[in-house]
């Protein structure tokens, strides 16, 4: 089964039909997606800023990352679920959308980068070497890209 088949199939699934026919389902799902984005953005930012030494400097990096992990990964899961629901509500609107494709590619990179950052951070206390800062910079850039591409989906 190709990706195109999969997208066509989920569009015809009963969940896809229900979501598409409802007036407010898409808006409600999108709003939850945005709420999770705010929580996620804050957690990612504070983790990355710690690496740059311009955030929670008084705390060791390992603690900042450990304590912010639940909301970071929790909101990521909420965004993933609501994101999938939005796609199910109209898969063919997304399949050929270049911004959507870019967003998915960046999203995969972002998740990988975030796991890497968390691995690095677990061993970091107060020292911040240049390559750790570069890793944080890459993470921040990727996630900003995900948000920009996400917003662009609606305009393409």
């Amino acid at each position: 089964m190709s990706m195109l088949d999969l997208f066509q199939w989920i569009g015809h699934s009963s969940l896809g039909v229900v979501l598409r026919q409802s007036t407010w389902a898409f808006a409600a799902i999108e709003v939850v997606h945005l709420l999770a984005l705010a929580i996620f953005g804050g957690a990612v930012l504070l983790v990355d800023l710690r690496f740059f030494r311009i955030g929670l400097n008084s705390e060791p990096t390992s603690r900042v990352v450990r304590e912010l992990s639940p909301q970071l990964f929790g909101s990521l899961v909420v965004m993933a679920i609501t994101g999938v629901l939005m796609v199910i509500s109209g898969p063919m609107r997304y399949y050929y959308n270049e911004a959507f494709r870019a967003k998915m590619a960046l999203f995969v990179l972002g998740v990988a980068a975030q796991f890497l950052i968390h691995k690095i951070a677990a061993k970091t206390e107060f020292d911040t070497t240049w390559w750790r800062r570069i890793a944080a910079g890459i993470s921040l850039t990727i996630w900003t890209g995900v948000a920009l591409a996400g917003r662009a989906i609606g305009y393409i």
Partner: peptide
């Protein structure tokens, strides 16, 4: 888009403070 990123910065950081006040994060 800039507006959305600004809100993410604002609400994201303020929610960390709120969650600390509720004892749900950065408790130490």
């Amino acid at each position: 888009t800039i507006h959305t990123l600004g809100i993410t910065l604002l609400v994201g950081t303020i929610s960390v403070i709120d969650l600390r006040l509720l004892g749900l994060t950065l408790r130490h």
